[in-house]
Write a protein that binds this DNA or RNA. Sequence first.
DNA 1: GGGGGTGGTAACCGATTGGTACCTACTTGT
DNA 2: ACAAGTAGGTACCAATCGGTTACCACCCCC
Lengths: 119, 119
Amino acid sequence: MTSPSRPEPPPDCPLERYLHVVSGAWVPRILWFLRFGPRRFGDLRRDLRGISTKVLTAKLRTLEADRLVSRQELATSPRQVQYALTERGMAFEPVFEAMIRVSHHLAELEEATDPAMDR
Amino acid sequence: MTSPSRPEPPPDCPLERYLHVVSGAWVPRILWFLRFGPRRFGDLRRDLRGISTKVLTAKLRTLEADRLVSRQELATSPRQVQYALTERGMAFEPVFEAMIRVSHHLAELEEATDPAMDR
DNA sequence: GGGGGTGGTAACCGATTGGTACCTACTTGT
DNA sequence: ACAAGTAGGTACCAATCGGTTACCACCCCC
């Protein structure tokens, strides 16, 4: 019997909390590149090769609304806008570290089970 | 200057490795519910309230192809099919643990900064 | 005043994702 | 015989997500 007595999905499931803010193709990648410090709009656009300015601004706006990212206009010559992780945004760091460890682990498993053998 | 000398996105970025298999609205949730042990098709459909059978089978097939999930037909009365995490699938556990920690941390931050004050 | 770089906005489109409805095939229960 | 529950498959849609193209405003330099 595999069905009975499972940990009921709590109404505020940690996974749902996470996925609510980090979803879609770009948001994880944006947070990823902000891990290393503040970044300007154009920097991010180059980091995330392939993203359109439309989507980048849209995603940054939602991240701002969720208070994971702060936006700061620098009073510089051609006008620069700097985006950085807020304290809330930095809280996601453990997830990225876990992803790194998992990726390494997967690579090891691949090596171990010979590139053409399974089951 | 914030732009120069950033950690170049490695061709096989850990994040890309992760997102390659875990993407979309349902895959993370499927892995989440398989964390607790093997699960049958109908169980998963009830766990993931709202998923359609079409999408569930499709996602389980891709997870099987990526060897994160194993499929086993049980020789039972009405025919049951059991899905379970493979060793590769279990490797993702640290990510989910990190998500749990992050969610808790975020909840704490919310309490700390009073439900109506910011900036 | 033109060119280039900054950081966008708006309108339109295409691709991807997921949902609905309906179907099969098998087994159990009434 | 028939309903109901198991695990799907298929065809057709709807919504969401992201891309393309154009354009704007600002500033600097020449």
